[in-house]
């Protein structure tokens, strides 16, 4: 840093520290408050909590409904990540190597989910599929399919970035000269080389699906409760157990983000926007 006149003096350094401090406090305090609240006996009348307890945690963890909601959330998110991989990875490989002229079309189709609210997709699916004689709208299949749609931007970008970083032509030609067919090339040569992108794509997809609320609530909410739906119900009648649940959700997202940060393909992943906002 050379001659940063505005921020080089003593007051500049102070301003820098205060700004950073406020930013860090804003980002950290709500989570810390939630954590403290979840282990407090009571904390709405006094500055400090009236005693420490693990009762709320014990209660939350022993609830059947909680275990069911975590199981539901985990299965939906894992299913979404796997389905997305199975759909996007071969397609991206095919477009990249065989049909580059279809790339602009795929770009538009996969960025589209950023261009509408999730509740609009829920409305569209219900309006389209609920008149059918078969009950397909309120099924895990429909929920996972809708999750694959809204997480397409993450998976497609992550996989396509790692494909574009490869010399797929040289790799394919080399494999073909050794007698491999298309499927073998994809399975044995390309897949191992785009593992990083597939992993970071899957983590982003998993994290987004795990905390998604709007679609789950509209499509399966009444029958199959996911963790966010369960949490919203608790915020309405038991704040202490809700704070423990919120902390569990934060921890899950934090773990996935840390995995993402340490994954080899982190540079190629799209930042942010996986928030179930």
């Amino acid at each position: 840093m050379t001659g940063e006149s505005s921020l080089s003096g003593k007051s500049g350094a102070l301003l820098r520290i205060v700004t950073m401090g406020l930013f860090l406090a804003f980002m950290v305090l709500p989570v810390v408050a939630t954590a403290l609240f979840s282990v407090s006996v009571r904390w709405d009348r006094t500055i400090f909590p009236e005693g420490v307890t693990l009762d709320w945690w014990a209660k939350v963890l022993s609830e059947r409904g909680f275990q069911r909601s975590v199981t539901n959330s985990l299965s939906f998110s894992i299913a979404t990540a796997l389905a997305s991989l199975a759909l996007v990875a071969p397609t991206a490989f095919w477009v990249h190597t065989r049909l580059p002229r279809a790339k602009p079309l795929l770009e538009v189709l996969t960025i589209l989910p950023f261009g509408f609210p999730a509740v609009v997709l829920a409305l569209g699916l219900i309006r389209l599929y609920s008149p059918l004689p078969l009950p397909v709208v309120n099924t895990p299949f429909m929920l996972v399919s809708s999750y694959v749609v809204i997480t397409l931007p993450f998976m497609y970008r992550a996989v396509m970035n790692s494909l574009e970083a490869l010399d797929t032509t040289a790799l394919s030609n080399a494999a073909r000269s050794l007698g491999a067919n298309d499927w073998q090339i994809f399975r044995r040569v390309i897949l191992p080389n785009i593992r990083g992108g597939m992993l970071s794509g899957s983590l982003l997809v998993f994290s987004a699906a795990f905390s998604e609320f709007a679609l789950a609530n509209a499509l399966v909410g009444t029958r199959l409760k996911t963790l966010p739906i369960y949490l919203v119900e608790f915020t309405r009648f038991d704040a202490r157990q809700a704070s423990a649940l919120a902390l569990i959700s934060f921890t899950a997202v934090w773990l996935v983000s840390m995995a993402l940060l340490s994954s080899p393909a982190r540079r190629t992943s799209t930042p942010g926007l996986s928030a179930p906002v």
Binding site: L24, M27, V28, L29, P30, V31, A33, T34, F37, S207, A208, S211, E212, F213, P228, L231, V232, T235, A239, A242, S243, L245, A246, L247, S249, F250, V253, W254, V256, S257, M258, L260, L261, P271, G272, L273, S274, A275, P276, V277
Partner: peptide, 20 residues
């Protein structure tokens, strides 16, 4: 910190702000 918190959202975040 930004990578983690950009993905915090929805119900848990709203509730954390009620607590804070």
């Amino acid at each position: 910190l930004s990578t983690v918190t950009a993905s915090f959202g929805g119900a848990p975040l709203a509730f954390a702000f009620i607590i804070a």
